[in-house]
């Protein structure tokens, strides 16, 4: 088994040009998203900044929530949540928008997804740099715990990938999945500890910590990036397993429905 796997990886990077192609498509998509117009990159900054100002006013000033360093606290939540929604909502229609790529038989459909996911990941990476910069200004300095973020990121990537596989293949059968997902995302924003204190969230709604994998991911990221703590390992293991199952379901759906994509759309 490891032998087959290593051969697969080898063929991906050396024998074929898949890896190169995925990266190229990801960077083209990233450019389309952010450099489309002159305001593009500015807009990418204005959006989170205005959100932070708004939430800060409501939750810290008006409701007096008393979270230390609320700005960078918010930033972590918004950053992860934005990646998740962008990666999932942005790919619901991927089998429709990228239909033009089906005509190439030596290109696998999963590459199309991967490119889009990576393009969102580049966005997350840029935001993360801004975060680190902002955190230093606020007096929170990077520690070796930041290394653990690789695990959390892998977890989030896998989860978003899985959800996007599921949604986009369901889209082939139900075109209104776009609207339905919009509602789910709307609920999800308030059912994740983005705006309010994670400990309150966990004690009042303990079930949601487990139902909503994003909750654990956000709490753990804060442990790592703000509180200089290792992640809550049992939570991390739970979320990883959760994400892996979601991904596998998505993968099965992809195998089952995507070959018919160009007929169903």
């Amino acid at each position: 088994m490891p032998h087959i796997l290593s051969q697969k990886i080898r063929s991906w990077f050396i024998a074929t040009n898949s890896a190169e192609r995925v990266w190229m498509m990801a960077s083209i998509e990233f450019k389309l998203r952010y450099y489309e117009n002159k305001l593009g990159l500015m807009w990418a900054l204005i959006k989170p900044v205005s959100q932070i100002v708004m939430y800060y006013l409501v939750f810290q000033v008006l409701m007096n929530q008393q979270v230390e360093n609320y700005v960078i606290y918010l930033f972590v939540g918004l950053l992860l949540w934005q990646f998740f929604t962008e990666a999932t909502s942005g790919t619901v229609k991927i089998l429709q928008t990228k239909k033009y790529l089906y005509e190439y038989t030596n290109m696998k459909k999963i590459e199309i997804y991967l490119a889009s996911m990576i393009s969102s990941a580049i966005g997350l990476f840029f935001n993360l740099l801004i975060f680190i910069f902002g955190a230093i200004i606020a007096g929170v300095y990077p520690t070796y715990h930041y290394v653990f973020f690789v695990l959390i990121f892998t977890n989030l990537f896998l989860l978003s990938f899985g959800v996007s596989l599921i949604l986009s293949n369901l889209f082939l059968l139900f075109k209104d999945i776009t609207q339905i997902w919009g509602i789910v995302v709307g609920f999800g924003f308030f059912l994740s500890p983005i705006l309010y204190r994670g400990d309150l969230f966990s004690s009042k709604l303990p079930l949601l910590d487990y139902l909503n994998p994003i909750a654990g991911i956000i709490n753990n990221t804060r442990n790592i990036l703000i509180y200089s703590q290792p992640p809550d390992w049992s939570m991390l293991m739970f979320d990883l397993t959760y994400s892996l199952i979601i991904f596998l379901i998505g993968f099965v759906l992809l195998k089952k429905y995507s070959p018919k994509a160009s007929e169903l759309i």
């Binding site: 074929t16 190169e20 498509m25 083209i28 033009y100 190439y104």
Partner: peptide, 20 residues
């Protein structure tokens, strides 16, 4: 086999790569 959202150059890269 072409994306209308991409430029001619980008389309050439994507198609060329997809053709191997």
């Amino acid at each position: 086999g072409m994306s209308h959202e991409l430029t001619a150059r980008q389309n050439i890269y994507v198609s060329g790569s997809a053709l191997g």
